[in-house]
């Protein structure tokens, strides 16, 4: 660990991560890890551990809000956690055995993927007819997992939305890999979970995002506890980070209603590509 880390630099990092993460719906980890490693000189494993712990508070806050508005599909979240948690354990185990340059390289590649997903083209909006057709009780394939079906009130359309959950097996499989990546690199698995739940499992976007926050809480909790046990979480680093991530995400949630998200996403995607290049160059010891 570097001998002297400025507490305000840590607080600023956490606040920026919480703010941007909340405004763009991405985990703060994709900002925390590069800033801690590239700017503050924190070794990769310490940065990942701190990032995971910071995401827990963000995910728990979001889960609390979503659950009270009944958007989280609790049963689906619990089911998918059955593969996410072993994935998170394996991810943390792998991270402890891989060198910092290799982790930096993998992280750089992941950032490029996240930048791609920020291009607005991804989540599908289902019409009321499509949702109803998906829930058809005569559909034999769906009947076996009808207990996962959910509903919530969407104030945007002033309507109660009911939906069926499809292909839980695919969700369980991808959940495992989301757990590995999340725990290994200190990022939220939402970048994988949300598109899979929405596009493959036919869960409406709002419910997918809400359920993903709960999944994120489980994955990052498991990963963070393992990093803490291995000594990769330092109290002096984690305290200002967690507090400022919390404050940043609260501010971001308010600001996001006033700003144009497309412009913000384009700027952030460009920033991510630049950071990715730096992380990959670092992996090859060029910088």
């Amino acid at each position: 660990m570097p001998a002297d880390i400025n507490i305000w630099a840590l607080a600023g990092t956490g606040f920026a991560a919480g703010l941007v993460g909340s405004m763009l719906g991405v985990g703060g980890g994709i900002l925390i890890v590069p800033i801690l490693t590239l700017l503050l000189g924190v070794p990769m494993q310490y940065a990942v551990g701190s990032s995971l712990a910071s995401i827990v508070i963000n995910a728990c806050t979001a889960t609390g809000v979503y659950i009270r508005s009944h958007m989280t599909n609790l049963k689906l979240g619990l089911l998918l956690s059955c593969t996410l948690i072993p994935g998170a354990v394996i991810g943390a185990w792998l991270a402890a055995r891989l060198s910092s340059p290799i982790l930096s390289g993998i992280f750089g590649l992941l950032l490029i993927y996240v930048a791609y997903t920020l291009i607005p083209h991804k989540l599908k909006r289902f019409t009321a007819e499509e949702l109803e057709r998906q829930k058809d009780p005569h559909e034999e394939e769906h009947a076996s997992h009808a207990w996962l079906d959910g509903e919530y009130f969407d104030p945007a359309v002033d309507q109660q939305i009911s939906y069926g959950v499809h292909r839980p097996g695919t969700g369980l499989t991808t959940g495992f890999f989301a757990g590995v990546i999340s725990s290994m690199l200190g990022v939220g698995g939402g970048i994988i979970n949300v598109p899979v739940m929405n596009l493959v499992m036919k869960v409406p976007a709002k419910a997918a995002i809400a359920t993903s926050a709960m999944l994120l809480a489980f994955t990052t909790m498991t990963g963070a506890l393992i990093y803490a046990y291995n000594g990769y979480i330092i109290p002096y680093v984690i305290a200002p980070l967690m507090i400022s991530v919390f404050l940043g995400s609260r501010t971001g949630a308010t600001l996001s209603q006033r700003l144009r998200s497309n412009t913000l996403m384009a700027i952030f995607a460009a920033f991510l590509v630049l950071t990715a290049v730096m992380m990959i160059l670092r992996a090859f010891k060029v910088i």
Partner: peptide, 20 residues
């Protein structure tokens, strides 16, 4: 200080377990 931070960290990390 470290004990207080550890305690706060553990409380937050165990929140998902409370959900379960």
């Amino acid at each position: 200080a470290a004990a207080f931070v550890t305690c706060g960290l553990m409380v937050i990390l165990l929140m998902p377990l409370v959900v379960l």
